[in-house]
Design a protein around this nucleic acid. Sequence first.
DNA 1: TAGATTGTTAATCGATTAACAATC
DNA 2: TAGATTGTTAATCGATTAACAATC
Lengths: 208, 208
Amino acid sequence: MKQIPDEVIRRLPLYLRTLDALYDEGETRISSGQLCRRLHLKASQLRQDLSWFGDYSQQAFTYDIDALRHELGRILGTHEEFSAILVGPGKIGTALLEHFDFIVDGYSVLGVFDKAPGLVGQEVAGVPVYDIETLGDFVREHKIDIAIMTVPRFAAQDVADTLIPAGIRAIWNFTNQDLRIGDADVVVENIHFSDSLLALNYYLAKKN
Amino acid sequence: MKQIPDEVIRRLPLYLRTLDALYDEGETRISSGQLCRRLHLKASQLRQDLSWFGDYSQQAFTYDIDALRHELGRILGTHEEFSAILVGPGKIGTALLEHFDFIVDGYSVLGVFDKAPGLVGQEVAGVPVYDIETLGDFVREHKIDIAIMTVPRFAAQDVADTLIPAGIRAIWNFTNQDLRIGDADVVVENIHFSDSLLALNYYLAKKN
DNA sequence: TAGATTGTTAATCGATTAACAATC
DNA sequence: TAGATTGTTAATCGATTAACAATC
């Protein structure tokens, strides 16, 4: 089987979200056509996407909403347990921490790391704050899976250079700085606010 | 000429960012090959992308970094002046406000809108806070271009339903809720934290 | 059963990559 | 000039869409 395209993976959360909403509305079954009309996608695309993951339906019958959303959750690994840390408890970092278990269950945030000595020893959103000097050792000792990076842009690569040799497995990067990870086997997921706003700006300016 | 693919537009901020960094390092010229080695892209892709926008170089000679970054800025409309508001001054909203002019110049943030009466009349990051009841009128009167939506998820569609008939032209949506905009001519740019984290989660879980 | 819907194969479309003449 | 690099055309690749037999 060929590699599943990233485009397909990126649509799964959308499907999951929509099915969750339908479930909350009390719906029990839906056809690919009905679902995709809501999403402005082609029904054949949904069916094609699902076909990457095997057969979770009864052919020629509509999808069982509850079964399919659980299946999508399983595919996306929402039942897995991962350990996480946050580096850079500014406003965005703190906001993420406070809403974290709204996003994915099964994450334990074990520590927050800050450079300023003021916060060290205190807690942010119930998580203890440590000195950033101890970051590498902490990741190594606790076998941390995911680092959430919300440090200022100029500090981003330094932090990555500490995390990667310490064995981090994934970085959720909010710094708008592209990280060089060498040949390390690290999953990097970027949220580049600035790129997003520039794209919006382009489309808006074009309409003028 | 055919429609410029969205994929191309999404790469322009990356090019711009990289050229800015090179400029700051004191570089003056660069070839498509050198630039793309840094970005893990194919040189032919960069050249193909730029060819959508006409000819800003001297054929068979390397690119002038300063000229090209200005050209990209012009294409993306960074010199345009837009008016903006923020709806929902929570932690993320406030963080965005505080860093806003780091992202794009030429934006004036004219107001912040909140539901809780506590903040109304005060300022957030130097911007006055108004009651959300007055949102529609404000957008209409001031001909606001862009709304930054950082409200809780359940409130998102209601806010959009107020903004759109008031003539908003773009929504930068942080709510993880897909907005129904009907047939309105509104640019919607989503930052779906949750989808991003689910994608990261998928790739990480797959490695287990 | 007849109508509806699926999973999957095949066709289409468009993005990426390679190739190369034009140019410095 | 010879070597390097561009812009652009053509080839390739892969994602999206359509079509349809299988199935309920």
